[in-house]
Amino acid sequence: MIFVGLLGVKADVRANDHFEIVTNPSVSEVALSVNSLRSIFSMSLKTWPNGTKIRVFVLSDDDQLHKAVSKGKLNVFPYQLRSTWDRLVFSGTGQAPVRVNSIEEMLDKVANTPGAIGYLWRANINENVNVLQIK
């Protein structure tokens, strides 16, 4: 019981800002505005400035990191992103981001997919991905 409580506290502390938006090394951008970032995760901005595809990777809606990024970085609730994606997918006007099942898979996909963007806890970031500054 105490153990579960401690885990909860730890997750909350981690959620405070210990994550970064990361991209595949092929992406030349080093900084993005919050609005552009929100457009990317809303799946409406589909290409990088050099014309190549943006490929968005996300964790599941109830994942701690996904919630932290949605609320802390994009300033929207996960359910709002979900309904935005559903509208695109089921009206045929857009695509959904690709869902990964773990932090490890996120790191792997972002590191190996050209044009990829995702997010990671700082502790999991390595030299295979670029960290994007959000202005």
């Binding site: 609005n35 589909k46 400035p49 006007t93």
Partner: peptide, 15 residues
């Protein structure tokens, strides 16, 4: 539906 969608212009939040 069966749609062909071409984005002619895109810059930040403008498309």
């Amino acid at each position: 539906y069966a749609i062909l969608d071409y984005q002619l212009y895109a810059h930040e939040a403008n498309q």
